[in-house]
Nucleic acid binder design. Structure first.
Lengths: 211, 211
DNA sequence: CGATAATTAGACCGACCGTCTATCTAATTC
DNA sequence: GAATTAGATAGACGGTCGGTCTAATTATCG
């Protein structure tokens, strides 16, 4: 009851580090990612995520403040995952810069195919749902696109320096154009359950850009 | 603002009105269109549609077999509306063929602006939601895109004949490319509540195509 | 006046998010 | 090992909301 004196020792179990990993938490996030990329945020129930990994409800609210917080964390992870994936492709010196972006599209296509074109892009999915989502999601989602675009723009700038792209074009605009269209392609690929839209857009983009 | 909420409505069969057939049904469809373009199918509740037009809950199933049937009818109407809108633009002889498509993009942009970029494309919205929608929607939605694409392709073919487009390009592929990207642009415009993505895509498309 | 058509009130039932309390396990000190 | 404290599991529960359906209500027609 006296003032806050730094206790020399505390009995009992010590608090865990705030960033300590947890298998259960991981499992929830992984299952959540699958559900949200397939069906979006509103259409996915917590119970559903819970039951696919056999975790009781009590645990969910132990690990996450709310469904919204859960979703926000999923967005951040997804964004970081793809940022890394882009960077990995863009750092591949065995290809020309433009070919690196093309390799990314093929890799993404393969990923979608692996899941039978049932999963879309989390950011695109939630973006479309935005009208029914908590408002804080908007900036978060827009920010993710902005980030991906910046990374892509620098790759395109290098392509330009390498003479693969008309020097008159603006790499930032091209990157914006690419992501606008690519998200459209992912949407269509998921709707039609085929890779065709991905190829149509990518082929068209690279053909047009190369002049 | 207050649409029509003066009378609390009478219960049973209404007196014979010289009215056109079922004003109520029309009102429901119009309100449904607004809701679905803003928030999608799953996130839109019947109650919500009902209350915005002051129609009692019991009435819904008098006019529509189910929410699914309601949605299907909305898709059909929306598809027909835009098909007509495309045709109208494509028939404008005062413009070159390519300029007609460009005029369509500007007109669509103006429409989105009129609603503060809160409403997206019904077909794109539901397409993204497909993972959580009744399966019959899939073909319907894909069919709408196919239809719009065909109309657009014939416009592009005329542009090609007029020498506006490189004769080596395939108008069908270009039309597919256009719609993939355009839907992506609408998605982003709605997310970011700005016209920029629409312009970025349209400007890029026409610049690249005119090459 | 009885039959039939058009419309609606309100009940039904399941799903959903989030809360709550109880219990169980893990880590540490005494 | 007993005591102590933190972390995690467990699932029932409440309140709300959503889609659907049946029964009731009112008009019109024969």
């Amino acid at each position: 009851m006296d003032a806050a004196t730094p206790q020399p020792r505390k009995r009992g179990r010590p608090p865990r580090a705030p960033d300590a990993p947890s298998d259960t938490r991981e499992a929830l996030l992984r299952a959540g990612l699958v559900a949200l990329t397939e069906k979006g945020f509103s259409a996915t129930g917590i119970d559903e995520v819970l039951s696919t990994v056999s975790v009781p409800k009590g645990s969910f609210y132990h690990y996450f403040k709310s469904k919204e917080a859960f979703g926000a964390e999923l967005i951040d992870r997804y964004a970081a995952h793809f940022a890394a994936r882009l960077d990995r492709h863009f750092a591949d010196d065995t290809l020309t810069p433009l070919a690196r972006l093309e390799a990314f599209t093929r890799s993404a296509e393969a990923s979608m195919a692996r899941h039978d074109f049932r999963r879309g892009c989390l950011v695109g999915n939630l973006g479309q749902e935005m009208g029914a989502l908590p408002e804080p999601f908007r900036q978060r989602l827009a920010g993710v696109f902005a980030d991906w675009q910046v990374r892509t723009a620098s790759c395109l700038a290098r392509a330009q320096a390498a003479g693969e792209i008309d020097p008159d074009r603006d790499p930032d605009q091209l990157a914006a154009f690419f992501w606008i269209g690519w998200e459209g392609a992912v949407l269509r690929a998921k709707l039609e359950r085929t890779a065709a839209p991905l190829r149509t857009f990518a082929d068209g983009f690279f053909a047009l850009v190369r002049g």
